[in-house]
Every structure is written in C-alpha cells, then in structure tokens.
Simulated scan of single mutants.
Amino acid sequence: MRVMLKATMNTDKTNEVIESGKLPKIVQDTMEQIKPEAAYFGAHNGRRTCYMVFDMQDSSQMPSIAEPFFSQMGAEVEFLPVMNPEDLQKGLANLR
C-alpha cells in the first residue's frame, strides 16, 4: 500500500542530531530502507518535517521505520494511506 510518512521533529533533539553530524545518515538509512518514490523536507508549524511517499509491504515495517525518528529526534510520526492520480482513477471507476 502506498503511504506517506510524515515525521515532525523536536527542534532541540534534532539540533543535537545535526550538531553531531548524524542527521544525513539517519535520512540516508531510512531512504535506503523504504525506497521512497518521493521525499520532501521542510517546516510544518515551525518544526522540521519530512514527508516520504513509499510502498509499505506490511504494517510490521512501521516500528523499524519510525523508531529512528522517535528515539533520536523526538519526532511525531504519522503513516497516512495516499493515492497517486492513477490510484484515484481506479478507485473512482469502482464507484460505478
């Protein structure tokens, strides 16, 4: 299932991770693990936030994906089911 990971990070904890030089490795490891079709980084409500859209094969993947964000950056993590335009068209066709 296509999902969007949204991780909104604690500023103080993430500052420590950035100062230690660990942030690039955490992001790289996550991206290698989930192989996102898209990844974006920015600010949401004044806090560092990343969004990654990827295909989740099984819900048992959630702990290993989310844990680095929880433990190292005090992040609030959400997994949201999402559709691309083709998925939407397929879903709408099933309404008829």
Score class of each variant (00 low, 15 high):
K25L: 02
D12M: 10
V82T: 04
Q72N: 13
I18K: 07
N94I: 08
M52S: 06
N84T: 12
I26C: 00
F54A: 05
E67R: 10
G91V: 03
E76Q: 14
R2Y: 10
D58K: 13
T11A: 15
V53E: 11
F69K: 01
K13N: 08
M56Q: 12
M56S: 09
H44N: 14
Y51P: 03
S60Y: 04
K25T: 09
D58S: 15
S71M: 10
S60L: 10
N15K: 11
P81G: 00
V17T: 08
Q57D: 13
S20E: 13
M9W: 02
F70V: 09
P36T: 11
L88R: 06
F69A: 02
T11E: 15
V3N: 05
K6G: 00
I34V: 12
Q61E: 15
F70D: 03
A93P: 05
V77L: 05
S59I: 10
A38L: 12
E76I: 11
E37P: 00
E16P: 00
N84A: 08
L88G: 07
A43K: 11
F79S: 03
I18L: 08
A39V: 10
Q89C: 08
S60M: 09
I34G: 01
M56L: 12
A66V: 02
F54C: 05
S20C: 02
K6I: 15
R48G: 06
N45I: 13
E16G: 05
M1Q: 08
F69E: 00
I34D: 01
D55C: 04
E86K: 12
F70N: 06
V53W: 03
N84C: 07
N10E: 14
A93N: 15
Q57L: 14
V17R: 01
Q33F: 07
E19F: 07
T14K: 02
K13S: 11
E19K: 14
R96I: 09
L23I: 09
Q89P: 02
S71V: 11
I34W: 03
L23T: 06
P81L: 03
P68Q: 07
N10I: 08
K25Q: 10
F54P: 05
P63Q: 07
V3D: 02
A43T: 14
Q72L: 10
P81N: 01
K25E: 09
G21F: 11
K25N: 04
P24F: 03
P81M: 01
H44T: 15
N84Y: 04
L5I: 03
E67Y: 03
P63A: 08
P85H: 06
D12L: 13
M1R: 12
S60P: 03
P24K: 04
N84D: 15
R96Y: 07
M31S: 09
R96E: 12
N15C: 01
L80P: 00
V82K: 03
E78F: 13
A39F: 12
K6M: 14
Q72F: 06
Y40W: 15
G91I: 02
F41T: 06
A7Q: 04
N84M: 08
E32P: 05
M1Y: 09
S64V: 09
Q89W: 13
M1S: 14
L5R: 01
G42D: 08
S71I: 05
S60W: 01
V53Y: 04
Q57G: 15
K6A: 10
F70R: 07
H44G: 13
E32A: 13
M83W: 14
E16Y: 06
I65R: 04
L80C: 07
V53A: 08
F79R: 00
N84L: 08
I34Q: 01
P36F: 10
K25M: 05
S59C: 00
